[in-house]
Design a protein around this nucleic acid. Structure first.
Lengths: 368, 368
DNA sequence: CTGAAAGCGCTAACAC
DNA sequence: GTGTTAGCGCTTTCAG
């Protein structure tokens, strides 16, 4: 490159001005653009001596490939959207989402893929999401917390954007069940394990504080409870909450009023368990002596710091996030090169479609 | 991703295949590409009749502009990076970050700009961030929680990426103070208001549980405390915490041991205040009768639900997020079109450079 | 193994 | 006002 600006800045750092292009690197290395491109993209078939020259030129010029140009020709953006329905108040009280995002972030980062966060406010926002996804800004999407009438699946499908869901979407139970890939904890089995523990502890009147029934995490845990109770299932021992401490307290009070004889409680999550625990203690009952209690999630900021510490069912939220990303990325690679093996070890078995249900583990502390 | 089966779905939705290009729209509307481009980009100088035709063609074809192609020529990505240092454990316990991100998201969305989330894990990650920012993927960046030796500023500067910081960076107090734009709450003044309240309540031995002193939110609040105490400032009445409930409890116990006669406490945040409150009650003291207590943040999940509810200093976290985004976007527009007014109403006054300090408000509940 | 050439889809001068 | 014409920086056949 003959035209260097008059006074070159002294520092050894690459020149500031306009970023160098492939062209510039090629000129400097004395090769063609094609060769530089090959080297930069790690192609094998290039003589070592040339490759070295190119690398040096890249270094000296501080060359960084232009993303837009690359995307324009490859049709790959190297970015993934993470769609979160805002109304979910949980976002703010729960470290849940952030942990899941953390897992997603780690996995994406490891694959040099960017995370585009989309907080979806209200119904008016769906048009925006739709446009965005259709705009080819991202290669795929990760979505959360789908309720019955969630428009996201339709949007991603129409936009032709591969999508993996977090948590089993409710509609998978519907007659025309669309086989969407999702990652979830084995809520039903986790609940079974919790209730079995209570039963094996000799408790005969095990109550359940259920989560919202428009979410599969709520219904699946209730189903697990019923599985174990079997014929002994008794409606008067079930109350509903909303996954918040307050709702747990309310539900507990209700249960106590209805069935003062209950001797155990399985709460559908730790937050509700903490509310229940408070009410239990206020009612003069001793935990676990009089009433044993088990939660769900093993949310670190809650479960370990209640008094007494909560026995609960742990789910690996961060792992779920990682897996969601892995599943998506895997699918994307497959679409590009429809071959087999790629070395990604599945974290768990896939029951059907491409979904993964992750094992839960019982964490025994002091409430049961 | 399972391909769509052979049989094309009947719906009136636009053809699936390859996405239509400007060219296609132009052909369909019987105009040139340039005209379509003008219409799509809302240019004024186009005859109405033509514009209508174009709009119709766009509609019929389901045309969506190709982002990469546009970026390639405009040099604008329409995306902003949000950089968060992962080690911050606060992320998981505090709704803080999510609220700030929520504010950022809202503002960006309103300006059709995307949010690229970068969780920075450790030192090894900085190279990645550096490469990413240099890669021209984003137009600007928003960064958080800078500690003394944070490399982010150097990285963004070198990459030439305009950046706005969340919270006053510590180095702004250094001799060679770089004038970086940031948004922060008026921590010092907020602290003054809190301590003045305590003093006006007649308390004579006001203690302070300080936050970490490597963060300006910690030091600024301590400074505010000292401002009010003036000559009465007494080191034995100050203990340090780490913005967590546990550290607040520890600090409180320490203070109580040292100065059993204290009659008020100003904690540098609500989380620490909650820990302190517990210890205070356990020590048999009545709040606020024996010891008055004021927190900071007005973190909804904490302040309103302590017993008794916490008097605290509120900062508008979501507003700070919005403002950060607004400042950045404003700067970007300016760079593009270096003119004046653009109708963005500042939420508060700018003291120097382009930074904004936001007012705090005292929220009186029951602890003082 | 390497280079030349043809675009990817769009915007922005510049003519008409 | 509207069309024509160059590229933006990169990958990728296709020759050699």
């Amino acid at each position: 490159m003959p035209d260097t600006p008059p006074q070159a800045p002294a520092g050894s750092r690459p020149p500031a001005g306009p970023r160098p292009t492939l062209e510039a690197v090629a000129a400097r290395a004395g090769v063609s653009r094609a060769t530089v491109s090959r080297v930069v993209n790690g192609s094998t078939g290039v003589r070592q001596s040339l490759a070295d020259k190119v690398h040096r030129a890249v270094e000296e010029l501080g060359y960084v490939p232009n993303h837009a140009a690359r995307t324009l020709v490859t049709r790959r953006t190297g970015a993934v959207a993470v769609i979160i329905p805002e109304p979910e108040v949980r976002i703010f009280s729960d470290p849940f989402f952030f942990r899941q995002i953390r897992g997603i972030s780690k996995e994406l980062t490891a694959h040099d893929t960017q995370l585009v966060l989309m907080l979806v406010e209200g119904s008016g926002d769906f048009e925006r999401v739709s446009r965005y996804l259709a705009g080819g800004h991202v290669d795929g999407a990760l979505a959360f917390s789908l309720h019955t009438e969630d428009p996201i699946p339709a949007i991603t499908r129409r936009a032709g954007i591969p999508t993996v869901y977090g948590g089993r979407p409710v509609w998978t139970a519907a007659p025309d069940r669309q086989a969407v890939p999702y990652v979830d904890a084995d809520n039903r089995d986790g609940a079974r394990v919790a209730v079995r523990l209570l039963r094996d502890l000799g408790r005969g009147r095990i109550a359940h504080i259920a989560g919202p029934l428009d979410q599969t995490s709520g219904t699946d845990r209730l189903d697990g409870y019923r599985d174990v109770l079997g014929a002994d299932y008794d409606e008067t021992l079930v109350a509903q909450g909303a996954f918040t401490p307050e709702s747990g307290a309310l539900a507990m009070a209700e249960l106590l009023a209805r069935r003062p004889d209950l001797d155990a409680v399985f709460a559908a999550n730790d937050l509700m368990a903490s509310g229940a625990l408070r009410v239990l203690k206020e009612s003069g009952r001793r935990v676990p002596r009089d009433v044993a209690l088990v939660g769900f999630d093993d949310m670190d900021s809650v479960a370990a710091s209640t008094d007494p510490p909560l026995t609960t069912v742990r789910q690996d939220v961060e792992g779920q996030g990682r897996l969601m990303a892995r599943l998506l990325l895997h699918g994307l690679d497959e679409a590009a090169a429809p071959a087999g093996q790629d070395g990604v070890a599945p974290l768990a078995a896939a029951p059907d479609s491409d979904s993964v249900i992750m094992r839960t583990t019982l964490v025994r502390r002091a409430t049961a």
